[in-house]
């Protein structure tokens, strides 16, 4: 009887000690990390385009954290899906076509002579990248434009085009042909 008692006692003491050690360790060596939502948000392209069905990247990040699919972001494309899959520890999937297709980076361009100054696009822009006032011509701040497409629909005179983002020499890649070339001799 006493053997059982002592063995139980020993186990209990051991459990207490290990519990205390583990508890101490979990506090002492706590890994400070961003909340999951912020980590996901950091991977999203921040176009705020809403193609995923949520009003912006942060809401989609919250949805992913709550178990939504990771393949609803066309601007981010396969690269973003892969990063999200790595973060969430799931298999990467192909982009959900229902939300659009991956495209070259674009920016909005307002045909200024056709603009009637209705400010509708300004209200639609999620990143305040359109400049203008009522009854005055509007224009897009190219550097701030995320290419989200949201200003195109509200425009009553359809004067906004999505044009491919300008490329520059700084990031020229050696296999990109920028000028027409041919061999003559």
């Amino acid at each position: 009887m006493s053997i059982i008692f002592y063995s139980l006692l020993a186990l209990a003491v051991l459990a207490l000690i290990f519990g205390a050690v583990l508890g101490f360790a979990s506090i002492k060596y706590k890994v400070e990390s961003d909340p999951l939502v912020d980590q996901i948000d950091a991977l999203l392209p921040q176009t705020q385009c809403g193609q995923c069905g949520y009003p912006g990247c942060k809401p989609y990040a919250e949805a992913i954290a709550n178990g939504d699919e990771i393949n609803k972001c066309p601007p981010g494309g396969e690269a973003t899906i892969k990063n999200l899959a790595d973060l969430m520890g799931v298999e990467p999937k192909s982009l959900d076509e229902a939300h659009g297709e991956e495209d070259v980076k674009k920016v909005a361009y307002i045909r200024e002579d056709e603009c009637i100054g209705c400010t509708k696009c300004i209200q639609a822009c999620p990143v305040d990248a359109i400049l203008g006032a009522s009854k005055l011509m509007h224009t897009v701040i190219v550097d701030e434009c995320t290419g989200c497409d949201l200003c195109v629909d509200p425009c009553p005179v359809d004067c906004i085009d999505m044009v491919p983002a300008p490329s520059n020499n700084k990031y020229w890649k050696w296999d990109q042909v920028l000028i027409p070339t041919k061999t003559i001799n």
């Binding site: 042909v177 070339t181 061999t183 001799n185």
Partner: peptide, 11 residues
């Protein structure tokens, strides 16, 4: 002599 090349090749 006009010379053009299409050799986009890095050094």
């Amino acid at each position: 002599m006009k010379f053009m090349s299409n050799a986009l090749m890095s050094s």
